[in-house]
Amino acid sequence: MSHSEKFIAALRQIQKNGQVNPELNSSLNAEEKELLENLLQKGLVDESLKFLDQLDIDNDWNLVKKRLQTIKPIRSIAPSILKYAAILIGLITATYFLYNANLNTTEDSNPADVITLKIGGEDVKVIDQGENQEIVAANGLVVGTQKGDILIYDQNDEIEELIYNELAVPYGKIFNLELSDGTIVHLNAGSSIRYPINFIKNHNREVFLNGEAYFKVAKDADHPFIVSAGEVAVEVLGTEFNVSSYEEDSEINTVLVEGSVRMRDASISGQNLILEPGFKGAFNKSDHTIGKAAVDLDLHTSWVKGELVFRKSEFNSMIRKIERRYNVTITNNKEELNQKKFNARFHVDIESIHDVMQSISNVTPFEYTIEANENVIIN
């Protein structure tokens, strides 16, 4: 446990029990013990932890220490207590402004590592997967709620025009969405979806996908559900299917789990394909052809459960999926690996990027390094 972690752990114990347990107390120095006692007597424990609980202190600690280097020693009848009190005040102040600066930067620039919700094409909101909150339209009307890792929209007959929200999920995360008709959407890493906050009578239920999503479509024979994914449109009445339409991939794929879908080239009215469960429809972006083949559904839908499954998969194709799900960059300097095929299964909540690379290198030996930011270099 680091220096900062010990001190903060002691603060938490004082907050909960009014004292520090003997084992942790023995790991603190005399000045820290005096400071903790002083904070307890002055009722500053809750105030101190209010901001610290919101931050990963270890990641911010070095920045805070640099900020604290400018503070001059304070000398008085209780120099040790005042010196550490000044440090704590400086820590709280610095982390408070650091937190708010980061929050403002996140909301303004929408960095690539946060989930964002664009409301009505203008306001952009950062979505924290640990929060519960109301989703409010640009006109102030509450249209749904966030419950942890899912946004749930309510059907509202008062809304008589198509108003769109756009949900974007970065690499390293997945997120869930329930549309106003009850359709469930699981959105994969590195994907975004644009959808109406409320489906309107006498209009098709159409959403726009960039990336990959698994759909469980609510049945409504009078209002076909259409997924527009680049140059492909997938039309259904009620079914479960997966659509993958990443910009960097050479194909747009639809895999049907149950029900029936029609996959068509959005630019060529006569070219379409009806899929049966267990089949994949593939649209080639280069020559605009559509073909289908029977597939192992697990290979294409296991990501919803947090798994990456590969069967006779070329290494260069595996890299793209690993990068998206683990939010890393893999630089492969060993080109002969690209065409090698592998069978593998990983669970992103159990196996780290190191576990993944170690497992693959056990099959076909190669050397790799993982940098501090977890990016991978293969040599």
Rank of each mutant, 00 (worst) to 15 (best):
I197S: 00
V243Q: 04
F366Q: 05
E314L: 09
L297I: 15
N242F: 04
E351D: 12
N156S: 10
T93K: 08
F215I: 11
G121P: 05
Q133L: 10
N29A: 12
E131V: 12
T106P: 04
V243S: 00
L177C: 11
K16G: 02
P224I: 11
Q69E: 14
F175I: 10
L55I: 15
L52C: 05
Q271R: 04
G90A: 01
W303P: 14
F208N: 03
S192K: 05
I184L: 08
K292H: 04
S244N: 06
E32Q: 12
K125I: 15
A189V: 07
L103P: 01
S192H: 11
K42P: 04
A138F: 13
Y96P: 00
S228D: 07
F315V: 07
T183I: 07
I163H: 08
P196W: 08
I159R: 03
E32M: 06
E122R: 03
S48A: 13
L273R: 01
D349R: 08
T183L: 10
V363R: 06
K305N: 11
L98T: 04
Y195T: 09
E307T: 05
E134R: 07
F208R: 05
E374G: 03
E247M: 09
G18Q: 05
I71T: 15
Y326L: 07
L162S: 14
V114S: 08
N332P: 11
Q155S: 15
T331N: 10
S302D: 05
L275N: 03
I152Q: 01
E161Y: 15
L187V: 11
I81C: 05
V236W: 08
T116M: 01
S109W: 11
I330K: 09
V114I: 15
D296R: 00
K219M: 13
F310I: 06
E206I: 13
N188G: 14
S352I: 00
N29P: 14
K216I: 13
W303N: 06
I290Y: 03
A101K: 05
A372D: 13
N284P: 05
E276V: 07
A112Q: 10
V232N: 02
T105W: 10
L98G: 13
F241I: 10
Q13M: 12
F283D: 01
E34H: 06
M263V: 15
Q271W: 07
S26K: 00
G172W: 04
